[in-house]
Amino acid sequence: MHSSDRRAAADGPDPDTDADQDAEFSLFVAARWRALTHTAYLLTGDFHEAEDLVQSTLVKVFPHWRRVRPETAEQYVRRALVNTNRSRYRRRRVVHLLLPSLPDTPATRGPAAGDDRDALLRALADLPERQRAVVVLRYWDDLAAEEVAATLGCSVGTVKSQASRALAKLRAHPALADHPLPSGLGDPR
């Protein structure tokens, strides 16, 4: 169904429209689940939280799916993902500060702990939430600075400055100093 058809549809329940919408949404979830979960994993540093984050984001998005244009669906969901993560981050940050024993790094099902991948995740976890989002969207999701700005609801200049600060912090992070990355950011020049 084309987006204009979706928007033109009545707000009330319409079995045919709802069925189309459900089918379209299901296809989107099946196609983008893996990519979204990887993005969420880099945002949260924990695969359990990543999967929860993507699920709760998709559940939030579903009621609005009728209004989402196909060409912007990816950006819409990514923005919802970042915003949902922001809420989660704000609510839990003090608990994490006061409970250092809580796993902030991936457990056994993710990449093996203690290696350079774990080091990068720990370094990412220490970035402020917005800088981490910029790094993940810009360098993992490979979005242009303009797209990152649209996703985060800020200016392109803010994206560039946040990316620059994030890179500087990553370079100076002790976890990366302890775990030089042969082909990564910690690679000595």
């Binding site: 949404f25 299901s26 099946a30 689940w33 893996r34 990887h38 695969f47 082909s183 990564g184």
Partner: peptide
């Protein structure tokens, strides 16, 4: 490119479970 490579290595080995389409749809509905 170095950061991109490092991020790719960070997610390497993390294989998410299959998409829980039915669960998401049920909760969304």
């Amino acid at each position: 490119p170095r950061l991109r490579a490092a991020l790719a290595r960070a997610v390497d080995g993390y294989v998410p479970p299959p998409a829980p389409v039915d669960r998401v749809l049920a909760a969304g509905r």
